[in-house]
Design a protein around this nucleic acid. Structure first.
Lengths: 144, 144
DNA sequence: GATGTTGTAATCGAAAAGATTACAACATCA
DNA sequence: TGATGTTGTAATCTTTTCGATTACAACATC
Protein backbone atom coordinates (compact mmCIF):
# COMPACT_ATOMS: atom_id res chain seq x y z
CA UNK A 1 0.00 0.00 0.00
CA UNK A 2 1.33 3.38 -0.93
CA UNK A 3 0.76 6.99 -0.04
CA UNK A 4 -1.45 8.43 -2.77
CA UNK A 5 0.00 10.38 -5.65
CA UNK A 6 -1.87 13.49 -4.50
CA UNK A 7 1.20 14.30 -2.44
CA UNK A 8 3.67 14.30 -5.32
CA UNK A 9 1.13 16.06 -7.51
CA UNK A 10 0.82 18.77 -4.87
CA UNK A 11 4.57 19.35 -4.79
CA UNK A 12 4.53 19.42 -8.59
CA UNK A 13 1.86 22.13 -8.39
CA UNK A 14 4.05 24.25 -6.13
CA UNK A 15 6.97 23.80 -8.50
CA UNK A 16 4.83 25.00 -11.40
CA UNK A 17 3.55 28.05 -9.57
CA UNK A 18 7.09 28.88 -8.51
CA UNK A 19 8.47 28.47 -12.01
CA UNK A 20 5.69 29.95 -14.13
CA UNK A 21 3.79 32.17 -11.72
CA UNK A 22 5.68 35.25 -12.80
CA UNK A 23 5.06 34.96 -16.50
CA UNK A 24 1.64 33.42 -16.88
CA UNK A 25 -1.58 32.58 -15.07
CA UNK A 26 -1.24 29.14 -13.51
CA UNK A 27 -4.68 27.56 -13.94
CA UNK A 28 -5.90 24.08 -13.15
CA UNK A 29 -5.94 23.44 -16.88
CA UNK A 30 -2.27 24.37 -17.20
CA UNK A 31 -1.36 22.26 -14.16
CA UNK A 32 -3.32 19.35 -15.60
CA UNK A 33 -1.15 19.54 -18.72
CA UNK A 34 2.11 19.60 -16.78
CA UNK A 35 1.21 16.82 -14.35
CA UNK A 36 -0.88 14.81 -16.78
CA UNK A 37 -3.56 14.57 -14.12
CA UNK A 38 -7.22 15.42 -14.62
CA UNK A 39 -8.06 19.12 -14.06
CA UNK A 40 -10.86 18.26 -11.64
CA UNK A 41 -8.40 16.33 -9.49
CA UNK A 42 -6.02 19.29 -9.66
CA UNK A 43 -8.78 21.60 -8.49
CA UNK A 44 -9.57 19.28 -5.60
CA UNK A 45 -5.93 19.20 -4.52
CA UNK A 46 -5.66 22.98 -4.91
CA UNK A 47 -8.74 23.31 -2.77
CA UNK A 48 -7.13 21.20 -0.03
CA UNK A 49 -3.96 23.28 -0.22
CA UNK A 50 -6.05 26.42 0.04
CA UNK A 51 -7.88 25.11 3.11
CA UNK A 52 -4.47 24.57 4.71
CA UNK A 53 -3.50 28.15 3.93
CA UNK A 54 -0.71 27.14 1.57
CA UNK A 55 -2.00 28.67 -1.67
CA UNK A 56 -4.29 31.46 -2.78
CA UNK A 57 -6.71 30.81 -5.59
CA UNK A 58 -8.37 33.47 -7.70
CA UNK A 59 -11.90 32.34 -8.30
CA UNK A 60 -13.43 33.51 -11.53
CA UNK A 61 -10.37 35.17 -13.00
CA UNK A 62 -8.35 32.06 -12.27
CA UNK A 63 -4.82 31.25 -11.25
CA UNK A 64 -3.03 30.01 -8.14
CA UNK A 65 -0.28 31.57 -6.04
CA UNK A 66 1.85 30.37 -3.14
CA UNK A 67 0.50 31.93 0.05
CA UNK A 68 3.62 31.95 2.21
CA UNK A 69 7.39 32.30 1.88
CA UNK A 70 8.96 29.12 0.55
CA UNK A 71 10.93 28.61 3.76
CA UNK A 72 7.70 28.59 5.75
CA UNK A 73 6.18 25.60 3.93
CA UNK A 74 7.58 22.13 4.44
CA UNK A 75 6.67 18.75 2.98
CA UNK A 76 4.78 17.70 6.10
CA UNK A 77 2.48 20.71 5.71
CA UNK A 78 1.72 19.54 2.18
CA UNK A 79 1.38 15.91 3.22
CA UNK A 80 -1.10 16.77 5.95
CA UNK A 81 -3.03 19.04 3.62
CA UNK A 82 -3.67 16.53 0.86
CA UNK A 83 -3.41 13.13 2.48
CA UNK A 84 -6.66 12.14 4.13
CA UNK A 85 -5.13 10.82 7.34
CA UNK A 86 -8.48 10.73 9.08
CA UNK A 87 -7.30 10.10 12.60
CA UNK A 88 -6.17 6.62 11.66
CA UNK A 89 -2.51 7.34 11.28
CA UNK A 90 -0.06 5.75 8.88
CA UNK A 91 -0.67 2.17 9.97
CA UNK A 92 -3.96 0.36 9.59
CA UNK A 93 -4.79 -1.84 12.55
CA UNK A 94 -6.90 -4.98 12.20
CA UNK A 95 -10.14 -3.79 13.69
CA UNK A 96 -11.49 -6.44 16.02
CA UNK A 97 -8.94 -8.62 17.76
CA UNK A 98 -10.53 -11.09 20.15
CA UNK A 99 -11.38 -9.77 23.60
CA UNK A 100 -11.26 -13.35 24.86
CA UNK A 101 -7.64 -13.87 23.90
CA UNK A 102 -5.12 -12.20 26.23
CA UNK A 103 -2.96 -11.33 23.25
CA UNK A 104 -5.86 -9.95 21.23
CA UNK A 105 -6.97 -7.93 24.23
CA UNK A 106 -3.59 -6.22 24.57
CA UNK A 107 -2.04 -6.06 21.12
CA UNK A 108 -3.27 -2.54 20.53
CA UNK A 109 -1.68 -1.21 23.67
CA UNK A 110 1.56 -3.01 22.89
CA UNK A 111 1.90 -1.64 19.39
CA UNK A 112 0.38 1.83 19.55
CA UNK A 113 3.32 3.70 21.04
CA UNK A 114 5.79 1.93 18.78
CA UNK A 115 3.85 2.75 15.63
CA UNK A 116 3.51 6.34 16.74
CA UNK A 117 7.28 6.49 17.05
CA UNK A 118 7.67 5.22 13.49
CA UNK A 119 5.14 7.67 12.12
CA UNK A 120 6.77 10.52 14.01
CA UNK A 121 10.15 9.64 12.53
CA UNK A 122 8.65 9.89 9.07
CA UNK A 123 6.90 13.15 9.84
CA UNK A 124 10.03 14.67 11.31
CA UNK A 125 11.94 13.92 8.14
CA UNK A 126 9.10 15.33 6.01
CA UNK A 127 9.01 18.50 8.06
CA UNK A 128 12.76 18.99 7.71
CA UNK A 129 12.43 19.55 3.96
CA UNK A 130 11.05 22.94 2.95
CA UNK A 131 9.82 24.20 -0.39
CA UNK A 132 12.91 26.39 -0.42
CA UNK A 133 15.01 23.22 -0.57
CA UNK A 134 12.80 21.80 -3.28
CA UNK A 135 12.81 24.92 -5.42
CA UNK A 136 16.56 25.19 -5.23
CA UNK A 137 16.76 21.91 -7.10
CA UNK A 138 13.89 22.82 -9.39
CA UNK A 139 15.62 26.06 -10.40
CA UNK A 140 18.90 24.32 -11.02
CA UNK A 141 17.38 21.67 -13.26
CA UNK A 142 14.80 23.79 -15.05
CA UNK A 143 17.25 26.51 -15.97
CA UNK A 144 19.85 24.16 -17.38
CA UNK B 1 -3.96 5.86 2.34
CA UNK B 2 -2.67 3.53 4.98
CA UNK B 3 -0.23 0.67 5.30
CA UNK B 4 -2.29 -2.51 5.19
CA UNK B 5 -3.30 -4.30 8.36
CA UNK B 6 -1.23 -7.32 7.32
CA UNK B 7 1.63 -5.73 9.21
CA UNK B 8 -0.14 -5.45 12.56
CA UNK B 9 -1.67 -8.89 12.02
CA UNK B 10 1.80 -10.30 11.48
CA UNK B 11 3.07 -8.83 14.74
CA UNK B 12 -0.04 -10.21 16.45
CA UNK B 13 0.84 -13.61 15.04
CA UNK B 14 4.32 -13.45 16.55
CA UNK B 15 2.84 -12.41 19.88
CA UNK B 16 0.53 -15.43 19.82
CA UNK B 17 3.27 -17.88 18.94
CA UNK B 18 5.43 -16.41 21.68
CA UNK B 19 2.67 -16.56 24.26
CA UNK B 20 0.99 -19.85 23.42
CA UNK B 21 3.64 -21.76 21.48
CA UNK B 22 4.77 -23.62 24.57
CA UNK B 23 1.42 -24.97 25.61
CA UNK B 24 -0.52 -25.58 22.43
CA UNK B 25 -0.22 -25.91 18.68
CA UNK B 26 -0.61 -22.48 17.11
CA UNK B 27 -2.60 -23.11 13.94
CA UNK B 28 -4.01 -20.69 11.39
CA UNK B 29 -7.42 -21.47 12.83
CA UNK B 30 -6.32 -20.46 16.30
CA UNK B 31 -4.65 -17.31 15.00
CA UNK B 32 -7.79 -16.47 13.05
CA UNK B 33 -9.74 -16.57 16.31
CA UNK B 34 -7.32 -14.32 18.17
CA UNK B 35 -6.94 -11.75 15.40
CA UNK B 36 -10.47 -12.03 14.08
CA UNK B 37 -9.04 -12.30 10.60
CA UNK B 38 -9.92 -14.99 8.09
CA UNK B 39 -7.79 -18.15 8.36
CA UNK B 40 -6.89 -18.05 4.66
CA UNK B 41 -5.49 -14.56 5.10
CA UNK B 42 -3.57 -15.77 8.13
CA UNK B 43 -2.10 -18.61 6.09
CA UNK B 44 -1.08 -16.18 3.38
CA UNK B 45 0.67 -13.92 5.88
CA UNK B 46 2.31 -16.92 7.53
CA UNK B 47 3.49 -18.01 4.13
CA UNK B 48 5.08 -14.60 3.52
CA UNK B 49 6.75 -14.71 6.93
CA UNK B 50 8.05 -18.17 6.12
CA UNK B 51 9.48 -17.00 2.79
CA UNK B 52 11.34 -14.33 4.70
CA UNK B 53 12.76 -16.95 7.05
CA UNK B 54 10.98 -15.54 10.09
CA UNK B 55 8.77 -18.49 10.99
CA UNK B 56 8.70 -22.25 10.52
CA UNK B 57 5.46 -23.91 9.57
CA UNK B 58 4.65 -27.58 10.06
CA UNK B 59 2.74 -28.64 7.00
CA UNK B 60 0.27 -31.43 7.57
CA UNK B 61 0.63 -31.69 11.31
CA UNK B 62 0.15 -27.97 11.65
CA UNK B 63 1.46 -25.18 13.84
CA UNK B 64 3.84 -22.26 13.49
CA UNK B 65 7.04 -21.40 15.36
CA UNK B 66 9.35 -18.42 15.41
CA UNK B 67 12.45 -19.25 13.39
CA UNK B 68 15.01 -16.96 15.01
CA UNK B 69 15.86 -15.45 18.39
CA UNK B 70 13.52 -12.57 19.21
CA UNK B 71 16.38 -10.09 19.24
CA UNK B 72 17.24 -11.02 15.66
CA UNK B 73 13.85 -10.04 14.23
CA UNK B 74 12.86 -6.39 13.98
CA UNK B 75 9.71 -4.67 12.77
CA UNK B 76 11.30 -3.73 9.45
CA UNK B 77 11.93 -7.42 8.72
CA UNK B 78 8.24 -8.06 9.30
CA UNK B 79 7.17 -5.00 7.34
CA UNK B 80 9.24 -6.00 4.34
CA UNK B 81 8.00 -9.57 4.54
CA UNK B 82 4.29 -8.83 4.42
CA UNK B 83 3.97 -5.44 2.76
CA UNK B 84 4.04 -5.78 -0.99
CA UNK B 85 6.42 -2.87 -1.62
CA UNK B 86 7.01 -3.93 -5.20
CA UNK B 87 9.90 -1.63 -6.01
CA UNK B 88 7.63 1.38 -5.86
CA UNK B 89 8.52 2.53 -2.40
CA UNK B 90 6.35 4.23 0.18
CA UNK B 91 5.27 7.11 -2.03
CA UNK B 92 3.22 6.76 -5.18
CA UNK B 93 4.35 9.08 -7.94
CA UNK B 94 1.97 10.39 -10.59
CA UNK B 95 3.02 8.32 -13.54
CA UNK B 96 3.28 10.50 -16.60
CA UNK B 97 4.24 14.12 -16.00
CA UNK B 98 4.59 16.06 -19.24
CA UNK B 99 7.89 15.72 -21.03
CA UNK B 100 7.17 19.04 -22.73
CA UNK B 101 7.02 20.99 -19.48
CA UNK B 102 10.41 21.71 -17.88
CA UNK B 103 8.90 21.12 -14.45
CA UNK B 104 7.21 17.88 -15.49
CA UNK B 105 10.44 16.70 -17.06
CA UNK B 106 12.41 17.18 -13.84
CA UNK B 107 10.00 16.69 -10.96
CA UNK B 108 10.99 13.07 -10.50
CA UNK B 109 14.66 13.87 -10.18
CA UNK B 110 13.90 16.69 -7.75
CA UNK B 111 11.77 14.61 -5.43
CA UNK B 112 13.26 11.14 -5.58
CA UNK B 113 16.18 11.64 -3.20
CA UNK B 114 14.02 13.53 -0.74
CA UNK B 115 11.35 10.85 -0.64
CA UNK B 116 14.00 8.19 -0.22
CA UNK B 117 15.26 10.10 2.82
CA UNK B 118 11.78 10.11 4.32
CA UNK B 119 11.26 6.43 3.67
CA UNK B 120 14.66 5.63 5.12
CA UNK B 121 13.82 7.54 8.29
CA UNK B 122 10.72 5.41 8.69
CA UNK B 123 12.60 2.20 8.00
CA UNK B 124 15.35 3.07 10.45
CA UNK B 125 12.81 3.56 13.20
CA UNK B 126 11.07 0.30 12.28
CA UNK B 127 14.36 -1.59 12.36
CA UNK B 128 15.23 -0.19 15.77
CA UNK B 129 12.34 -2.07 17.35
CA UNK B 130 12.89 -5.80 17.82
CA UNK B 131 10.46 -8.56 18.72
CA UNK B 132 12.33 -8.75 22.01
CA UNK B 133 11.09 -5.22 22.77
CA UNK B 134 7.58 -6.10 21.68
CA UNK B 135 7.40 -9.31 23.69
CA UNK B 136 8.62 -7.55 26.80
CA UNK B 137 5.45 -5.48 26.70
CA UNK B 138 3.32 -8.44 25.68
CA UNK B 139 4.55 -10.47 28.65
CA UNK B 140 3.95 -7.63 31.05
CA UNK B 141 0.38 -7.07 29.92
CA UNK B 142 -0.65 -10.67 29.31
CA UNK B 143 0.58 -11.89 32.66
CA UNK B 144 -1.12 -9.18 34.66
C1' DG C 1 -7.08 -44.72 5.59
C1' DA C 2 -9.26 -41.14 8.86
C1' DT C 3 -8.30 -36.73 10.63
C1' DG C 4 -6.56 -32.23 11.03
C1' DT C 5 -3.81 -28.99 8.91
C1' DT C 6 -1.47 -26.18 5.27
C1' DG C 7 -1.19 -24.33 0.35
C1' DT C 8 -3.54 -22.16 -3.14
C1' DA C 9 -6.81 -20.92 -6.66
C1' DA C 10 -11.12 -18.66 -7.65
C1' DT C 11 -14.70 -15.56 -6.66
C1' DC C 12 -16.97 -11.87 -4.13
C1' DG C 13 -17.79 -7.37 -1.85
C1' DA C 14 -16.11 -3.13 -0.04
C1' DA C 15 -13.27 0.81 -0.12
C1' DA C 16 -10.40 4.25 -2.27
C1' DA C 17 -8.29 6.58 -6.06
C1' DG C 18 -8.43 8.82 -10.18
C1' DA C 19 -10.92 10.01 -14.75
C1' DT C 20 -14.65 12.10 -16.73
C1' DT C 21 -18.92 14.73 -17.60
C1' DA C 22 -21.81 18.31 -16.35
C1' DC C 23 -23.07 22.52 -14.60
C1' DA C 24 -23.55 26.37 -11.29
C1' DA C 25 -20.95 30.36 -9.30
C1' DC C 26 -17.90 33.88 -10.09
C1' DA C 27 -14.66 37.65 -12.05
C1' DT C 28 -13.14 40.23 -15.89
C1' DC C 29 -13.44 42.75 -19.94
C1' DA C 30 -15.26 44.28 -24.23
C1' DT D 1 -24.65 43.66 -19.75
C1' DG D 2 -23.37 39.71 -21.68
C1' DA D 3 -19.51 36.76 -23.51
C1' DT D 4 -15.58 34.33 -21.85
C1' DG D 5 -12.61 31.81 -18.99
C1' DT D 6 -12.08 29.92 -14.63
C1' DT D 7 -13.13 27.63 -10.14
C1' DG D 8 -16.23 24.66 -7.08
C1' DT D 9 -18.59 20.58 -6.75
C1' DA D 10 -21.69 16.75 -7.49
C1' DA D 11 -22.38 12.43 -9.85
C1' DT D 12 -20.86 8.47 -12.20
C1' DC D 13 -17.49 5.09 -13.82
C1' DT D 14 -13.29 2.21 -13.91
C1' DT D 15 -9.47 0.28 -11.81
C1' DT D 16 -7.03 -1.42 -8.10
C1' DT D 17 -6.34 -3.43 -3.73
C1' DC D 18 -7.69 -5.50 0.37
C1' DG D 19 -9.83 -8.87 2.96
C1' DA D 20 -13.64 -12.63 3.28
C1' DT D 21 -15.10 -16.80 1.68
C1' DT D 22 -15.55 -21.34 -0.56
C1' DA D 23 -13.42 -25.22 -2.29
C1' DC D 24 -10.17 -28.59 -2.70
C1' DA D 25 -5.60 -30.72 -3.31
C1' DA D 26 -1.28 -31.90 -0.70
C1' DC D 27 0.60 -33.46 3.37
C1' DA D 28 1.72 -35.52 8.17
C1' DT D 29 0.32 -38.20 11.97
C1' DC D 30 -2.11 -41.55 14.33
Amino acid sequence: MQISSRFTVAVHIFACIHTFGGERKVTSEFLAMSTNVNPVIIRKILSQLKSAGLVDIARGSGGAAIAKPLCDINLLDIYNAVECVGGGGLFHFHENPSEQCPVGRNIHQVLDDKLVRVQTAMENELSSITLEDVMRDVDRLVKS
